[in-house]
Design a protein around this nucleic acid. Structure first.
Lengths: 335, 335
DNA sequence: GCGTTTCTGTCATATTCTTGACAGTTAGGC
DNA sequence: GCCTAACTGTCAAGAATATGACAGAAACGC
């Protein structure tokens, strides 16, 4: 579908469904409301939306409505004229103006003051606004995307969120699934983060045993992707060996997933991995190229075996193109 | 020096010295006497000589003087006319005639009858001979190379070898060193043979631990290269595992080299080699290419470390060209 | 010093590898 | 049957790699 996912990683059907919707709505200018638990990557999603819209080369202006004191938020959004209030020393451009032609991302819109909600509503309906303390009306050629982790319908019934604004925003609702519902993605993301942290902050490479990956996949990740990312960073710093083992996992995760901690006693190290060394080349009387070829051949064979000879899948497992795999097999007379 | 060694393998200074001489004398037509224990590869050496001579595209005719009954040897060498003796049903061309323009290799010349020695001498001096029972004198445009594992000087003093022939042959003496004096070559050859037998008669690859190689290098190899070759073939058939271990070596060799057999008990398998598997890629979240690159990088680093950063030597250790090594380092930002 | 050897990096060339585009097969689903 | 989806191999072009030829720098012997 040629949709730029801008670094959002995952293959779960839940996520793919989100991408499907996103690809459909991105080209239009419709207002979008993204809902999802905190840490599910809402901002990333909206960035992707922007990048795939007609406004991609115009500004993307995110603003976290929950992080800014309500007194300041208005002038932040709309700007203010000089002398509008104390400290308003000079005229200031607001986010909506900065975003001309582009996209404004209102994060945590559920935190927004009722009084401000009206002004946002006006922007959505009339496509215009005024700076704080200003009288000139400014046209707003912006696409508005909002996000929240609250249940806005509930806020509406509690009276803390304007019903009319909710309906305006909720033209296209997109629900970002929590990590725990993205199955396989946990492992993909975990390995991705681990690798990232290693290349940046570590000599050598820290691996993760498959049993460990399985446990992580079963954990609930209440903090979603953000929690996972932090967790992998911690692991990359704390673990010394070649690979993250069961013993390295914090009790919290082990308890929740109900794993018997095998104690640090056994250390079987039966057939654990060891990077090939020069002496291994010598032992097999191979040159570098021949050795690498042989390693490659073994991996090709194993990959093919694992997927019943389906070259298509084997190539994916190996992270190479199918045609590349075929050419390799040809070269090695395995075809 | 661009000398084609025709499959003679080794780097020992003893052997290099032989090559040096060989390269010098090959282009000339001088008679050569190769001395060396049995199994040192005399025939191979003479073939190399021939191939590097001006006669390379003419016949190379070897004849083992010790293997042919003396009654037959003469007619074998010089041919015979029809009816020269019983069974001489038809005229037969001898080896010297076959070799016209090429090289005749008289192996085990020490075994040759005194009466025949005279005729060889005539070939060397007059460059001519007659077929057995023939009267026509035939010109012999051949280069003669002789070899023996006996001490010809001793044979001369015992009276079993003609002094004049000895001096004629011994124009250029080449002494092929016994394997036990070729140090490092034992290991090179052992690995070479092992690899050969494996590719031909075995699924998979049998390696040889470095400790084993060290022991082989210390053994005396009375049968020289031939014994070593046979031995490696035996190993390739008898050993089951990934690699030849101390326990696989016959007592004879262990006793001679004074090695304590560590019994079959321990089997520590501490950090023994294991070919990388698919799960190792997954554990490190690498694709095939990235993984191989990483293995390569580690090996490059290790090789460089082993030779104090001398890229020239590192390349040799790895069995690649120096320039290739440099390009690889460049690509990996290690330069 | 000076000649010789050894090691070095660069560069152009030849070779090999990778991949996208294509077209043909097979296997179900209906 | 027919359609779709997944899998297959081929091929050409572009990217990447390997290597021979070169020339400059260090090391060595004398």
């Amino acid at each position: 579908m040629s949709f730029d996912t801008c670094g959002i990683i995952g293959k779960s059907s839940a996520l793919q469904e989100v991408f499907r919707i996103l690809a459909k709505v991105a080209p239009s200018d419709s207002t979008i409301l993204v809902t999802g638990e905190s840490g599910t990557g809402k901002e990333l999603l909206v960035r992707a939306l922007h990048r795939n819209s007609r406004r991609a080369d115009k500004p993307f202006v995110p603003i976290n409505c929950g992080a800014i004191p309500r007194e300041l938020l208005e002038s932040e959004l709309f700007g203010h004229e000089k002398g509008a209030f104390t400290h308003a020393i000079r005229t200031k451009i607001g986010r909506f103006e900065m975003a001309q032609g582009g996209t404004v991302f209102l994060d945590e819109i559920g935190e927004m003051d009722l009084s401000l909600q009206v002004k946002i509503l006006r922007v959505l309906q009339e496509r215009e606004f005024e700076r704080v303390g200003g009288s000139k009306t400014i046209k707003a050629d912006v696409r508005v995307v909002a996000a929240t982790n609250r249940d806005l319908e509930e806020e509406v019934s509690k009276g803390t969120f304007r019903e009319d604004l909710f309906y305006r925003l909720n033209v296209i609702p997109i629900v970002l699934p929590p990590l725990r519902e993205r199955g396989e993605d946990v492992i993909i993301l975990a390995r991705y983060f681990l690798k990232n942290f290693c290349t940046n902050h570590r000599p050598g490479i820290l691996g993760m045993a498959e049993e460990v990956a399985d446990i992580l996949a079963r954990y609930s990740w209440p903090g979603n992707v953000r929690e996972l990312e932090n967790f992998m960073e911690r692991m990359s710093i704390l673990c010394d060996g070649e690979s993250i083992g069961l013993v390295d996992l914090p009790d919290k995760i082990l308890r929740e997933t109900g794993v018997e901690v095998p104690k640090r006693v056994p250390a079987p190290a039966d057939a654990s991995f060891r990077w090939p060394e020069l002496k291994d080349l010598r032992e097999k009387s191979m040159g570098l190229k021949e050795f690498l070829d042989h390693v490659e051949e073994r991996l090709l064979t194993e990959a093919l075996g694992e997927v019943d000879g389906i070259k298509n899948k084997a190539a994916e497992v190996l992270g190479i193109k199918r045609t590349t795999l075929i050419e390799k097999l040809k070269k090695k007379n395995m075809l």
